[in-house]
Amino acid sequence: MNTLRYLSLPDLEAFYDLLADAIDLVPPEKTELMLTKLALLMANEVADIEKLKALLESARQDL
């Protein structure tokens, strides 16, 4: 049974806009820092090292 919860499409769309705005609002030289902070905060919420490894692998694909 799949116990994962996914974002609803409207919420995914909302976060899409929020993240884009946030990236535009910080100075370009601070973008990486902000995204890294966000990654650490999200990692703490996910709280599952195996899931985090898989997410990191997905992010590295097809760059």
Partner: peptide, 17 residues
């Protein structure tokens, strides 16, 4: 360096780091 800076920045408000 990026991870260290991110952690330092979070320390001000996020006890978990």
């Amino acid at each position: 360096r990026l991870l260290r800076d991110a952690v330092l920045s979070l320390t001000l408000t996020q006890p978990f780091v």
